[in-house]
C-alpha cells in the first residue's frame, strides 16, 4: 500500500503567450518510511512537485492519492485538515511567524488541530528539545541563527506526527555547519521510520537519502534507488 501515488500529474502555467509545464505528466509512487531526494536544475519543477505533494497547490490535471485520500477531489477545508495532520512542510526560508516565540511557532499546527493549551505546550516543548533547542523556547525568530530557525521549523513540521515530511531545500539558506546538523537530523528522522522527501542541490544531503529522483522540465528523468539493502526496498523487491 503506497503512501503517495501520483498519476499523470501536470501543472500548467499560462502567462501571456508563455506557456510553462512546471510538471509534465509526473507519475510517482512513494512508500511509507522512504527517505527520498529530488534533484534537478533550477526551474525544473521541484518546488511545484513539493507544493502539490504538500497540498499547498492543486495540479492542473492528474490524480494524487495520499494515504487513501483522493486529494484532487478535496475541498479547501479538507485540504487544510490534511496539511494539518498528515503533512509536515519545511521551507528554505523557514516561514516562521516573526512575532511569536519558538515555542508558539511549534505549537501553531496544534492550535488548528484543536489540541488544548496544556498538551500543546508539552508537545511543542518536547519537540524543541528533540531538535536541541530546549534553551531557546521563548526566543523569537530574529533572536535565532539560521540553523536554529530551521530546527524550529523542523520541530513544527513534526509536532502533529505527520505521515510525510516535505522539505524544500532545507539547507539552502544555511552555512555548511548548520546544514550538516540539519542533514544529521534528517537521517535520525529516517531511522525513526518517518517518510521524508527532500528537495536539494546539496549532494551530501542527497547521498544520505535512499532514493534520488531527477527532474528536468517538469518530467521525472531518473528514479534511482541507492540503497537496496534498506528494509522498505527489500520488502518491495520481494513483492
Amino acid at each position: 500500500m503506497p503512501l503517495v501515488k501520483l498519476e499523470g500529474v501536470t501543472k500548467h502555467y499560462e502567462s501571456g503567450d508563455e506557456s510553462v509545464y512546471a510538471l509534465d505528466d509526473v507519475s510517482l509512487i512513494i512508500y511509507k518510511g522512504e527517505f527520498l531526494s529530488i534533484l534537478g536544475p533550477s526551474g525544473s519543477g521541484k518546488s511545484t512537485l513539493m507544493n502539490v505533494l504538500g497540498c499547498l497547490d492543486k495540479p492542473t490535471s492528474g490524480f494524487y492519492q495520499l494515504d487513501d485520500h483522493d486529494v484532487s477531489t478535496l475541498s479547501c477545508n479538507q485540504l487544510a485538515a490534511i496539511r494539518n495532520n498528515k503533512i509536515g512542510f519545511i521551507f528554505q526560508s523557514f516561514n516562521l511567524l516573526e512575532y511569536a516565540t519558538a515555542l508558539e511557532n511549534v505549537m501553531l499546527p496544534l492550535v488548528y488541530a484543536g489540541v488544548n493549551i496544556k498538551k500543546r505546550r508539552a508537545k511543542a516543548a518536547e519537540l524543541l528539545k528533540r531538535v536541541g533547542l530546549e534553551d531557546r523556547m521563548s526566543h523569537k525568530p530574529n533572536e535565532l541563527s539560521g540553523g536554529q530557525k530551521q530546527r524550529v521549523a523542523i520541530a513544527r513540521a513534526l509536532v502533529n506526527d505527520p505521515q510525510i515530511i516535505l522539505a524544500d531545500e532545507p539547507t539552502g539558506a544555511l552555512d555548511s555547519k548548520s546544514g550538516a546538523e540539519i542533514e544529521a537530523l534528517f537521517s535520525e528522522l529516517h531511522h525513526e521510520g518517518r517518510t521524508l522527501i527532500v528537495v536539494t542541490h546539496d549532494i551530501s544531503l542527497a547521498r544520505r537519502t535512499k532514493r534520488i529522483i531527477n527532474i528536468k522540465d517538469g518530467k521525472v528523468v531518473e528514479d534511482e534507488i541507492l540503497d537496496r539493502s534498506s528494509a522498505i526496498y527489500r520488502r518491495r523487491e520481494g513483492d
Binding site: G54, N77, A80, N84, N85, N95, L96, L108, Y112
Partner: peptide
C-alpha cells in the same frame, strides 16, 4: 499575507 500563508500551510482553515 505571508503569515496567513504560514498559518494555512500548517492547517488553518479559511474560516479560522
Amino acid at each position: 499575507t505571508r503569515d496567513i500563508g504560514i498559518r494555512m500551510a500548517v492547517g488553518a482553515k479559511p474560516g479560522a
